[in-house]
Each structure stands twice: as C-alpha cells, then as structure tokens.
Design a protein around this nucleic acid. Structure first.
Lengths: 193, 193
DNA sequence: GGAGCAAACCTATGGCGATTAGGCTAAGAC
DNA sequence: GTCTTAGCCTAATCGCCATAGGTTTGCTCC
C-alpha cells in the first residue's frame, strides 16, 4: 500500500531519467542525478528500483513501449509501401526526438525481462503486419523483419552518432532508404514464392 | 625521444584496451584496468593519452582503421553483387569477432578528430567503390552508401545487442539481407537514371 | 482514537574509478 | 660527467554506486 505523499513513483522516476538521458546523454543518467531531480537522496531509490541497472531497465521498458505506440499509430490505416514509409518515418523520428531514450531501447543486457519481451513483440508484430502487405509470410517474413529493423536502426543510430558526416541532406537520404527497402522487400517476397 | 624501456606505448595501450573491451564489455574499459594490464599505475597513463576519453579515441581510430582494412581486403578483386556480399560479410564478421572494438567505432563524440575522419573516409570509399559496380554515381551513390551502412550497422548492432531474440538462423537472415540490399541498390541505380 | 505495521526516507560508511598536483629516477643527449 | 626530460610514482580530491541500519509517519484496523 503505497503512501499518497510519496515523492518517488515509477512514473516520476522514469520521467526524470528520460529527461536526463535526452538532454545530457547516457553518462548523465546516475542515481544521484535522478534522486536530486525527485528531491530525494540516492539510497532512497533502492526502495523503488534495483539500483542503476534497475532504472535503466524501467526506462528501457518504457522506451520500447513508446516506440511500439508510435509505430502502431503510424501503420494504422495504411498498407504496402505507404505503411512502410510511415512506419520508417515514425521509427527514425522517435530516434531523433528522444535520442537518449532510443539508445537505451536496444543497448543492454535485459536479462530476459518479461516486459521487455512483450513490448519488443509488439514492435515486431507491427513490422510484421507491414510485411504482410508485401505478401511475406512465415519464416521469410521474419528474415525480412530483421532486414527492415536493421536498416531503420542503422539509420537512426548512424544519424545519432554523427556517422553521416557529409553535408548531404539527411531527409533525402531517408527517402532513398525507404525506396531501397521497398525494393528489397519486393525481392524477398518474390524469392519466397 | 621516447625511452627504450617504456612499459606504456600507444600500441600496447590499444592492445590492452581492445582485449578488455572484447572480453569484458564496455564497462570494463577503465584506466585502472588498462594500467594494471600494462604493469603501471593509472595516473601514469596521462603522460600518454588524454584520460579515459583519450583511450577511447585511440581505440576508435584503431577500430575504424581495422574495419577499413577488412572491408578493402574483402572487396578487392570483386565487383557487383559479389563485392557487396563479401563486404557485407566482412563487416558483420568484424562486429562478431570484435564486438567491443566495433561498438566503439561508431558510438562516440569524436570531436572532429582528423584520424577518425581519415579512417572513416577510407571505409566510405570502399563502400562507394562497391556501389560504382551498380552504376551509382555522385549524390545518388552517397545516399546509397547511407542505405548500405545503415543496413550493415543495424544488423551488426542488433545481433550484438541480442535484438534477434527468436531462434531463427542468423546466417540465413544475413543472406536475405544481402539479397534485399542488392535489390535496393538496383532500384536506386535505376531511379538515378 | 490509539497501536502497530510497513512504506518512504535518512545518515553513515566503504569502495572504486577519474583526475590533478607534485616529486623521484634514470636513460640518453651533449 | 652533467643535465634535461621521459616515464613513473604517491598522495589526495571528488563523484558515484551500493549496503547497513535507524527514524519518521501515513494507513489500517480494532
């Protein structure tokens, strides 16, 4: 029975952690900093989460869930290339707007946490639904999912790391990427038949 | 004028750092650990590199150079889809065999270091050479490079992070990825014309 | 309306890693 | 042989994670 006057709640803790992460990078996510943001001392957090890794886990779960939300929202009511384009845009935008949060969704030893698995499955299902629009099914669809996620994650990660150093328009590159992925999916769909 | 009996050299320092990274992960790369491996105390390292970030920079430069070596070796004597396949395999294998080193090649604020730029340019050029085999030139080739690097980095990163949770064969997924990227490049080459 | 339980915090402490300051030693130049 | 300086060192500070153990104070239930 949680007390009503608690300064620390899972929601507020995640909120603070995400803010630190997005504004000051991964290094800034410390127990001390989170505690300070919540008006509390660092050891107090141990009553709510399992140390720094626990904070990261909570944030990761939250991040994957939010990513799943964004992808599902983007794909709803669309199909085929249209759906691919919308989902891809949503994915990349998520990485752009919440770089710190996004980085945590993938990096990490999640020790087989159930919530991570469930949230990840939802992301996977959303992508799979898009691929069905290309006629991809079963194993071929799963391989294709890995291709799509590789391309999207790679793009988001390279963008974040400053890997696209040249002064070439990134939005144009994104459009080319979607075009190329579209062609790749058509190839995989044909190869499957 | 360096002394002959020095225990710390750039080479030995990088070697130790890479070993720590590949065997025990990013967290294990500490000044204390590197110093211990070299038979020296941590503060002594400051005479050779600029702190922990300096170590990371040295390792990053080394990693990008080695990646460049691997890609160039893989592409030499091949062209077209054959070259793409070989380069992709070399890229992914690099990430598999040296996960810690690979992770550092991209993650990071390299503050515009000249050696990083140069080594990165060599990687870029190798990929560009492959794309010329598809008839891609100029701007279109650069956009295509981003597509290829996104797909390869994404695959390597997801593999390393355990993002491919399902028990689906990863080598088969890799073959599908190469196939899809090949199709994507053909599309981009046609769109260019 | 008070007793008791447990939630929510706290201080104290230990340990480790980064980094700075300041000093010793001995290799190699001249 | 002197002297410069590269290469290491110890000492000390600071920030952070983590554990141990204690105090306050809502809440619930008689």
């Amino acid at each position: 029975m949680p007390r009503a006057d608690a300064r620390v709640t899972r929601e507020r803790l995640i909120e603070s952690a995400v803010a630190l992460l997005d504004e000051h990078g991964p290094e800034a996510l410390t127990l001390t900093a989170v505690a300070r943001a919540l008006g509390v001392r660092a050891p107090s957090l141990y009553h709510h989460v399992d140390g720094l890794d626990g904070v990261r886990l909570e944030v990761r779960v939250h991040g994957i869930e939010r990513l799943g939300d964004a992808l599902q929202r983007a794909s709803s009511g669309r199909s085929g290339r249209d759906a691919l384009s919308a989902v891809a845009r949503a994915y990349v935008d998520f990485g752009r707007h919440q770089p710190g949060l996004y980085a945590l969704t993938l990096a990490g030893s999640d020790g087989g946490d159930e919530r991570v698995r469930a949230a990840g499955a939802r992301v996977l299902d959303t992508v799979l639904a898009v691929l069905h629009g290309y006629g991809l099914q079963d194993e071929a669809a799963l391989h294709a999912t890995r291709f799509v996620r590789s391309a999207l994650h790679g793009f988001a990660a390279l963008e974040r790391a400053g890997g696209f150093a040249l002064s070439l328009d990134q939005d144009a590159s994104f459009d080319h990427l979607v075009d190329a992925v579209d062609a790749g999916l058509e190839r995989l769909a044909n190869a499957q038949a």
